[in-house]
């Protein structure tokens, strides 16, 4: 049996909004560690890894490991019926082909349950190797979203280059070119407004902007985003989920052959 109670139900709503554009169907895996998901987009260019640790739930019961296949648009339809301040409980019985989402209003005067059919999804888990990244950039998530949006009105791809000068986002298209440089900036009022660049060595990689823009759907989950880059490795765009875990998006680079 599975029963997960999340007082801050809006987190789950935001998680679904963050990934449903990228991934259509996915298996949600429940174990003693937490509630997790690993899935790729249909063209296998991007991968999303979600972890919500069991300690982050008010109540977490998972008697045995369970993998639940869901259509993310359908999950999103269900969760959009929950109020932003609602407590959300996810329930499933062993061997059942349904999952139940229960929504409780904060003062307990409204309780709703939505039962959704599960589906069988063939998916293989990929081993994500631990890597030392050549450069790690932490910046306000809203700033990163703005940059991706702005550049995608000019071109289709972004070159992200990290040097000791800062991090540069460049694109080129039919109408012209654009370069946005963000320098390290630690002298800000709030730590979440800082741009911090940890560089072992300079790195420059090319990525499809369409996917980057899709990742920024996770912006409401975190004030900051961390971008980890290494030559010949997928970039990692990570949004931490307060006290609970993370969403990490991996995007394979475009490489000159």
């Amino acid at each position: 049996m599975l029963e997960l109670r999340l007082v801050q139900g809006s987190l789950l709503k935001k998680v679904l909004e963050a990934i449903r554009e990228l991934v259509t169907d996915a298996n949600f895996d429940c174990s003693a560690t937490g509630f997790s998901l690993q899935a790729m987009d249909s063209s296998h260019v991007a991968l999303v890894a979600l972890l919500l640790r069991s300690e982050g739930f008010e109540h977490y019961r998972c008697d045995r490991n369970l993998s639940m296949g869901m259509n993310l648009n359908n999950v999103s339809k269900m969760l959009r019926c929950a109020g932003n301040n609602d407590i959300i409980t996810v329930k499933a019985d062993d061997g059942s082909d349904t999952v139940t989402f229960m929504f409780e209003s904060p003062n307990q005067d409204k309780i709703a349950d939505f039962e959704m059919k599960l589906m069988d999804i063939d998916s293989e888990h990929l081993g994500i190797p631990d890597a030392e990244y050549q450069a790690i950039v932490r910046m306000p998530s809203s700033e990163f979203a703005r940059i991706c949006k702005d550049l995608s009105s000019i071109g289709d791809t972004v070159i992200i280059s990290v040097t000791k000068e800062g991090v540069k986002f460049s694109t080129a298209g039919d109408i012209g070119t654009a370069n946005i440089v963000c320098r390290q900036n630690k002298t800000v009022d709030k730590p979440e407004e800082a741009t911090i660049i940890e560089m072992q060595e300079p790195v420059s990689l090319t990525f499809a902007l369409r996917y980057m823009n899709s990742f920024t759907k996770a912006t409401p989950l975190s004030e900051t985003v961390t971008i980890s880059l290494s030559s010949d490795l997928p970039v990692v765009v990570e949004y931490k989920i307060a006290e609970m875990g993370y969403i990490r998006f991996y995007l394979a680079p475009k490489i000159e052959e």
């Binding site: 790729m40 063209s43 296998h44 260019v45 991007a46 991968l47 293989e124 888990h125 990929l126 081993g127 994500i128 190797p129 791809t157 090319t206 499809a208 010949d232 490795l233 997928p234 991996y250 394979a252 680079p253 475009k254 490489i255 000159e256 052959e257």
Partner: peptide, 14 residues
């Protein structure tokens, strides 16, 4: 023109 790679080139199946 740089060619789009896929994730499986970098991450092996478990």
């Amino acid at each position: 023109k740089p060619k789009q790679q896929t994730i499986s080139r970098f991450f092996p199946p478990k």
